[in-house]
């Protein structure tokens, strides 16, 4: 049985007039990245870890972006968690090392986060192994 908190919730994005400036700034940048993607197909990234977000900012950003349809965990020398936010094409990516320390945390804009794509070199190796 799924518990209540395991059911994804679609939080409504209520325009860009909220109280936290930092969160506003991120949302604003996301808007621009989405525009860029829609017009030229160019993907974009925002580095969250290096932003001076307070814990409240962080929580409120997380809340405002909400959870979307997809989530994945990649085991890449430590876990990497990826989930799509309630905004299609906006992905939340957290890279952790073996000790579970956050190495990088990003918002990625695009059809699919780069980290999920298999690299041609790896595919070539796979072919050789068959």
């Amino acid at each position: 049985m799924t518990r209540l908190q395991d059911i994804p919730v679609n939080t409504e994005i209520t325009g860009l007039d909220a109280e936290c400036n930092m969160v506003d700034a991120v949302l604003h940048e996301l808007k621009q990245l989405l525009d860029a993607y829609l017009s030229s197909g160019e993907t974009g990234v925002i580095d969250i870890k290096s932003m001076p977000l307070s814990a409240t900012d962080y929580d409120s950003l997380k809340q405002r972006l909400g959870n979307g349809e997809i989530s994945a965990t990649a085991s890449l020398a430590g876990d990497t968690e990826i989930y799509e936010t309630a905004l299609s094409g906006v992905w939340w990516v957290v890279h952790r090392n073996i000790d579970d320390r956050v190495l990088a945390e990003q918002l990625e804009v695009g059809r699919i986060p780069a980290i999920l794509c298999a690299h041609d070199d790896d595919i070539r190796v796979a072919r050789e192994r068959l």
Binding site: A77, Q106, H119
Partner: peptide, 30 residues
């Protein structure tokens, strides 16, 4: 990397972490 069985995904992750720690633009990572 290939010989050590380290996937390019893992390597990309490492580069992402490196760029983040050096305050480089994340779009440069790939």
């Amino acid at each position: 990397l290939a010989r050590r069985g380290i996937s390019r995904r893992t390597f990309l992750k490492f580069c992402t972490a490196l760029a983040s720690s050096m305050a480089l633009s994340p779009s440069m990572v790939p």
